[in-house]
Simulated scan of single mutants.
Amino acid sequence: MTIDQNGDMTVQGASLRALPKVSLHDHLDGGVRPATILELAEEAGVTAPATDAGALRRWFAAQCGAGSLPEYLKAFDLVTSVLQSKRALTRVAREFVADLAADGVVYGEVRWAPEQHLAGGLSLDDAVRAVQRGIEEGEDAADAAGHGIRVGQLLSAMRQGDRSREIAELAVRFRERGVVGFDLAGPENGFPASAHREAFDYLAAEFLPVTVHAGEAAGPGSIRSALLDGRALRLGHGVRIAEDLQVIDREGDEVQVQFGDLARWVRDREIPLELSPTSNLHTGAIAQWGDELADHPFDLLHQLGFAVTVNTDNRTMSATSLTRELALLVDAFGYDLDDLEAFQFNAASAAFLPVEEREELVEVIAEGFER
C-alpha cells in the first residue's frame, strides 16, 4: 500500500478512496464535522470544550480513546445538544451525505435516534423529515457533481429508554419516505434487547428490517438476545461472536477452530457483522484479544467465512473514514483488492434494500473494482 501526495491510499495501483463502497453502520451524530459543531454550538448558546475545529478533534480523540463504551458515548452529549432544530438536522444530514460521497460511498445507511432531538420542540416526525430533507439535498448535490449515492435512514431506539415501540411505529410510518430499517442502540450491559420485545414483535409483523447493537460492550448473550428477541437481520458490531469460537490449533495461516452453537448459527446463516475496527478498539470491544488493530478478530472471522462488513461507526469521534478503515485492514492483515471487494459485496448483500436493488449495487461494486 502506498500513500500519494494528496493523502489517498493506493492498493495494487487502485485508489482506495475511488473504489465504490457500502457503509452500513454510521451514526449521524458521530459524523458531524467539528467546524459545524462549533458553528451550531455558537448559534445555540452551547459552550464547547474547544474554540477551533482542530482542538475539538483532539478533544474527541481524548474522550473516545479511553477503551470504554460508556466513556465513548459521553462525547455524544455535546453533539446532541446542538442538533435540536430542523435547520441543524438538515444541515448535518446534507454534509453527512457529502462526506460519504467524497469517500467513495455509493450506498449508505445513516442511523440516528430521533428521541434525542426533541429538546427544542421538534416532534419525532419533524425530526425525521428534517433529516430526510438534508439527505435528499446531499444526494442531489453529489449527483450533480458526478457521484451517484443513495442514503437511507435507520431509526434507532435507545435501549436504556422506554420509547422503542414509538420509534418502531415511526420507522414504519416513514418506510416509504426514506427510512429503510430500525436499530436498537445505547449501552448493552443491563439493557437487553429482550426488554424491547414489544417493539420487535411489531416490527416483525410489519416486515421492517432490524439491526441491533450487540456483541460490542457485552458478549454472546447480547448477540443471542438480538437474534432471538430482536429478530435482527444484522448485528451492530457483533465482534464478540469470536468469544464463541475456541482456537484449537494454529500453524502459519491455517487455524483450527471449534464453533459454539451461536457462532455456527451466525456463520452458517450468513448474518452480517457490522464490524468497525477503529471504534471496536476505542470502546474496548476487542480488549480481550489485545490493544492493537492487528489483534482484532476481524481476520479470523473473515477466514472462517463470516459475513464481515467494514464500517466507521462514528467518523468524527474515531477520526476515520471508510477509506481509512480499509487501509488499516490492508496494513494489519495484508488484504488485497479481492478481499476489499468481498467486504463490499457482503455489505451490498446485507443492505436493507429490495433484492433487485441489492443486485444492482453488487454490479456497481464489481464494475468499480474492475476499473
Rank of each mutant, 00 (worst) to 15 (best):
S123T: 15
G146F: 09
I167A: 00
G178W: 06
G181E: 05
G190V: 07
E109R: 04
Q84Y: 00
P34F: 05
A53F: 06
V11M: 03
N311I: 10
P297K: 02
G252P: 09
L203I: 07
G54P: 02
A171H: 06
Q258D: 13
P49H: 01
R57N: 15
A119I: 07
E251Y: 09
A168M: 06
A50M: 03
L208F: 05
G181S: 08
L340N: 07
G65Y: 11
V110D: 05
A113L: 11
L56H: 00
G186T: 06
E341Y: 15
D162E: 14
A366C: 10
L124W: 05
E274R: 06
V97N: 01
A242I: 06
E251R: 13
R234T: 02
E274Y: 01
F306H: 03
I241R: 00
R224G: 05
Y202N: 08
V180K: 13
A327G: 15
P277I: 12
V362P: 01
L16E: 03
E359L: 14
E206D: 07
R231K: 14
E360L: 11
V46M: 11
Y202G: 03
Q344H: 10
R133T: 12
L16M: 07
E359A: 15
P354I: 09
L122G: 05
A348T: 08
N6C: 08
D244N: 09
A319Y: 08
G219C: 04
F182S: 02
R17C: 04
G134I: 04
F182M: 10
S68G: 08
L326W: 08
P277K: 04
S68C: 14
L293Y: 10
A18D: 12
G284W: 01
A18L: 14
H296A: 09
L326T: 01
P49E: 00
F306R: 01
A14N: 11
F96E: 06
G7Q: 14
T80C: 13
L118V: 10
A44Y: 03
E254T: 15
R175E: 12
T309H: 04
A61Q: 15
R173L: 08
E216L: 11
R111V: 04
L227W: 02
S279Y: 06
A113E: 01
L208G: 03
D99A: 15
K74T: 12
E360Y: 11
D29N: 13
F333I: 03
D331R: 13
E216C: 11
G236F: 10
H213N: 02
W265E: 13
F76H: 00
P49F: 00
G120W: 11
H147T: 11
E42M: 06
D336C: 07
F182V: 06
I365V: 09
V151N: 11
Q116D: 12
V310L: 08
Q12D: 14
Q344E: 15
N311T: 12
H302Q: 09
G290S: 09
F259L: 07
R371V: 11
G368S: 03
W265C: 14
F345A: 14
D162N: 12
Q303K: 14
Y202K: 07
